[in-house]
Amino acid sequence: MSSIAAPPLAQKKRKFHIAPYMLILPAIIVLLAALAYPVGWQIITSFQEYGLKQQFGQPPEWVGGANYVKIFTDPQIWAVILRSIAFCLVNAALTVIIGVALAVLMNSIVKGARLVLQVGLLLAWAMPVVAAMTVWLWLFNWYSGVINWVLGPAFANHNWLEDPISFYAVATIIVVWMSVPFVAFSVYAGLTQVSGEVLEAAQLDGANGWQRFTQIILPLIRPVLMIVLLLQIIWDLRVFTQIQMLQDAGADYNSTDLLGTFIYRTGAGSANYGMAAAMSVFVLVLTIVLSAPYVRSLLKEDNNG
């Protein structure tokens, strides 16, 4: 549409237009002030020693790449990075697998059941993160949570958040529960474009369900799948609220921190701004690199949408 709508005005007057620049100016000012300035500050600060002393008026000290060297040499920070990557990949993979399974299921059941499943997923998706977290904390609560009750006497008063592995298992359940609806609906939208006739023809030719899935459906929904997987990886890498609120409920910070909470504690907690800035720059660069293919797919829509 845009390609039809835009040219007429442009073709008529080839002269320089001031209007579009005036129109984007307010947005640009806000973005510069609230995002670009902090990013700039962050890049500068990441090359400085900027801690408590600077809070009390001492000028920051230039330390070159020392903060970055520390990211890649400090075993504690390495552990945080590796944990974040592992958590992100496991969660993104689980979310996409379960989401695709639900989408395929949605596509092959009676209408009433499909509606019930869609409403269920929508309600879970609509929950504000913090509200959802309070419910999950209540469900996993050690002394009167339903989950311990369902699992029986062996789990009476079991604290799920004490051990890092079970802490991450709980976090994974919550994150996957929250993220699956988006994947399921997106993939389902893709699936509805797969023609039923083609599938029927394949079935008559003797292709079984798995063959139909891997050889017809999967190649057709590949573009959606790649985008959804990419978005999940980007989103799960920055997971913060879930981890923070699980930690609030009584977990050891040092063994459960992921990138987001670690930066928060380094910056807001210990006022080690130089280090927090370097970590933030690391996260931003990682995000931009990961986002490139996604942005390309959106641009494709801009050009022929």
Binding site: I263, G267, V283
Partner: peptide, 9 residues
């Protein structure tokens, strides 16, 4: 795409 977690400090 920029994460709040990379900017909030």
């Amino acid at each position: 795409m920029l994460p709040a977690e990379g900017l909030f400090i």
